[in-house]
C-alpha cells in the first residue's frame, strides 16, 4: 500500500488548460479564463481568451487552441477531457507600441 495521495487542485488544472490555449492564441496566459464542468465523470473545458492578430485566421487559431487543450491537457494533468470549447473574447493587437 502507498500512503498519502497526490491531487491536483482545480485551480492548477484550470491554469494549465488556460496557458495551453493562450499559447496557441498568442496571448499571455493570464488573459485566459477557464471554466470546468462535469461531463459524465470527465471534464468539460471552456476557455475564454483573446486572440492575437496576425496568426492566420481567428478560427484557425481557436481550432489550434482547442486541439492543444484536448491533446496536451490530459497529458499534463492526467485528467480525462470530454470536450473543450474556446471562446474568443476579443482581438489582441500584439504590435509593440512605440514609446516616444
Amino acid at each position: 500500500m502507498t500512503a498519502g495521495r497526490v491531487t491536483l487542485s482545480t485551480r492548477a488544472i484550470e491554469r494549465t488548460f488556460g496557458a495551453l490555449a493562450a499559447e496557441e492564441l498568442g496571448v499571455p496566459a493570464s488573459s485566459s479564463s477557464v471554466d470546468l464542468h462535469d461531463e459524465r465523470g470527465s471534464l468539460a473545458v471552456s476557455v475564454s481568451a483573446p486572440v492575437a492578430l496576425g496568426r492566420g485566421t481567428v478560427l484557425e487559431a481557436a481550432q489550434a487552441a482547442r486541439q492543444r487543450v484536448l491533446t496536451d491537457g490530459p497529458a499534463l494533468t492526467g485528467a480525462a477531457i470530454a470536450n473543450a470549447r474556446i471562446r474568443v473574447r476579443s482581438l489582441h493587437d500584439v504590435e509593440p507600441r512605440r514609446v516616444r
Binding site: 482545480t10 462535469d38 465523470g41 471534464l43
Partner: peptide, 10 residues
C-alpha cells in the same frame, strides 16, 4: 458503484 456524474476538482 461509481456514480457516472463526477464533481469538479478539489
Amino acid at each position: 458503484r461509481v456514480e457516472s456524474a463526477g464533481v469538479v476538482g478539489r
